[in-house]
Nucleic acid binder design. Sequence first.
DNA 1: CAAATACCTTGAAATAACCTTAAGGCTTTC
DNA 2: GAAAGCCTTAAGGTTATTTCAAGGTATTTG
Lengths: 224, 224
Amino acid sequence: MRILVVEDKIALAQALEAILVENKYTVDTVHDGLKGLEYSMSDVYDGIILDIMLPGMNGLEVLRNLREERISTPVLLLTAKSEIEDKVKGLDYGADDYLTKPFATEELLARIRAVTRRKGEMEIDGVEFSDVQLNLKTGEISCGGNSIKLGLKEFQLMEMLLKAGKQIITKEQIIDKIWGYESDTEYNNVEVYISFIRKKLQHIHSKVQIKTTRGLGYSLEEKN
Amino acid sequence: MRILVVEDKIALAQALEAILVENKYTVDTVHDGLKGLEYSMSDVYDGIILDIMLPGMNGLEVLRNLREERISTPVLLLTAKSEIEDKVKGLDYGADDYLTKPFATEELLARIRAVTRRKGEMEIDGVEFSDVQLNLKTGEISCGGNSIKLGLKEFQLMEMLLKAGKQIITKEQIIDKIWGYESDTEYNNVEVYISFIRKKLQHIHSKVQIKTTRGLGYSLEEKN
DNA sequence: CAAATACCTTGAAATAACCTTAAGGCTTTC
DNA sequence: GAAAGCCTTAAGGTTATTTCAAGGTATTTG
């Protein structure tokens, strides 16, 4: 876990760093807003502790800039004031939590844990193999810059193929899963969809090919 | 935006509900921990306001159970005490924020907004995609100089679409969130509202279109 | 090597999903 | 209590997907 501390008061900054290091975080510390923003932009941190009162650029500005750049690292705002208006503004600017000075060490650690846990659980929303990925939320496959939409059945079949990767899946398995195990769909139907997907894979210039193993089923492989 | 309020004191529960409804949230209210857990499990809420002191099962228990079931709906804990140990425990159990009674209406709303905001996104009082924005306070969508008012259902649906952006949302999800997960609303109803919104998007000359992906759902895209 | 088998591709027909409009019932507003 | 607006349902038209069928190409087998 890598944490960035942005705090101008040297004593406090060192104290924070000490507490965090003690608890096995990796810590970088900077002392003004501009540096804070610069470091944050690298998007390598699991969390940022950000003082509001800072020389150069204040904490809220840093935060706003960061969120505008779509960097979603969790931010824990730090301030002397506990005024409601400040909290409101901070939270609306995209802070994840708020800590007023002075604070107990335990509370700091708990909030850090809370804030980094939430983001850490981000679920993946795609499956991939070699140079193609299937976006489960848009129903498109893409390779490099190209992408193309799949129909429902194509989508389901592609998902199965990607999850299986180099392992062979049979037409039986495909029909069971996509059409239901007591469907009387013909094998030919599967072949039709395999054909559709092959065409679309070519269309996005992917190196991935669907290999057929006679009598067994289909699997993915890389061309070249 | 659908919020679940779990609060045993009827007066407070009603007050919360009134404030939230006033601000265009859809609200369900239950008065004990067990019901609270049961409702939360449906996983259709954008946020849960959870009192700690509850009959049956206390708030922290509810929260722990919820997180164990891998349901990550943001939770705003509500309590009379402001003891640090309680905060620590609450946050460690997976709460997203903490509000001590009594609280200002503004602070409640700000924290709800903060907590329900999708990670890293900004939302002052509107959501937007490309050239349209939705004003959460007036319930109007606008593009350039033009704007037009949305009905409640249109509003809620548009909000979902804007938040999802290019990601597909299913009719199932739409019905669960807008009509409630145990409603028997027909899919056709959703289609009707999609149609209405499409017409209004054209009317304000937006480049945004609602794209339908057959068998999957709807998403936004930019024309041209 | 022929013949059988498994698989590919394509176009057209069938089907299911979706769109739109309109109308009736309900609630809110003046 | 009439008007306006909103919600829901129903019906017919539209379109994309799914299926079927036919003719073709590889691969195995006797």
